[in-house]
Deep mutational scan, measured.
Amino acid sequence: TFTSYQLEELEKVFQKTHYPDVYAREQLAMRTDLTEARVQVWFQNRRA
Rank of each mutant, 00 (worst) to 15 (best):
T1F: 11
T1C: 11
T1Y: 13
T1P: 12
F2R: 02
F2G: 02
F2P: 03
F2K: 02
F2S: 15
T3Y: 05
T3Q: 05
T3L: 07
T3I: 04
T3R: 04
S4F: 09
S4G: 08
S4I: 13
Q6D: 02
Q6N: 02
Q6P: 01
L7S: 06
L7I: 13
L7W: 09
L7Y: 05
L7M: 08
E8M: 13
E9V: 06
E9P: 00
E9S: 04
E9Y: 04
E9M: 09
L10A: 01
L10T: 00
L10Y: 00
L10C: 05
L10H: 01
L10M: 13
E11H: 03
E11T: 03
E11M: 15
E11K: 03
E11P: 01
E11A: 03
K12Q: 06
V13R: 02
V13T: 08
F14R: 01
F14V: 01
F14H: 01
Q15N: 08
Q15G: 07
Q15C: 07
Q15P: 00
Q15I: 12
K16A: 11
K16F: 10
K16G: 06
K16S: 09
K16Y: 10
T17S: 12
T17F: 07
T17G: 06
T17V: 06
H18V: 06
H18Q: 14
Y19W: 14
Y19L: 03
Y19C: 08
Y19F: 12
Y19V: 04
P20I: 05
P20G: 02
D21P: 05
V22N: 09
V22K: 15
V22E: 12
Y23T: 10
Y23L: 13
Y23W: 12
Y23Q: 13
Y23C: 09
A24F: 11
A24L: 14
A24S: 08
A24V: 14
R25Q: 05
R25V: 15
R25D: 00
E26T: 13
E26Y: 13
E26V: 13
Q27A: 13
Q27C: 08
Q27N: 06
Q27R: 08
L28A: 02
L28P: 00
L28Y: 00
A29Y: 04
A29L: 05
A29V: 07
A29K: 05
M30E: 09
R31L: 12
R31D: 05
R31P: 00
R31E: 06
R31F: 06
R31W: 06
R31N: 06
R31Q: 08
T32S: 04
T32N: 03
T32G: 02
T32L: 15
D33H: 13
D33E: 12
D33A: 12
D33T: 07
D33S: 12
L34D: 01
L34H: 01
L34V: 04
T35S: 15
T35V: 04
T35Y: 03
T35K: 04
E36S: 07
E36L: 11
E36V: 13
E36W: 06
A37D: 12
R38K: 12
R38N: 15
R38M: 15
V39I: 15
V39H: 00
V39D: 00
V39W: 02
V39Q: 01
V39F: 01
Q40F: 11
Q40S: 13
Q40M: 14
Q40D: 15
Q40W: 09
V41S: 13
V41G: 11
V41L: 15
V41N: 14
V41A: 15
V41H: 13
V41Y: 14
V41R: 11
V41M: 15
W42L: 01
W42R: 00
F43T: 00
F43Q: 00
F43A: 00
Q44A: 11
Q44M: 12
Q44C: 10
N45M: 14
N45Y: 11
N45R: 14
N45F: 11
R46C: 03
R46W: 02
R46V: 02
R46G: 02
R46Y: 02
R46N: 03
R47Q: 05
R47V: 07
R47T: 04
A48N: 11
A48Q: 11
A48T: 09
A48H: 10
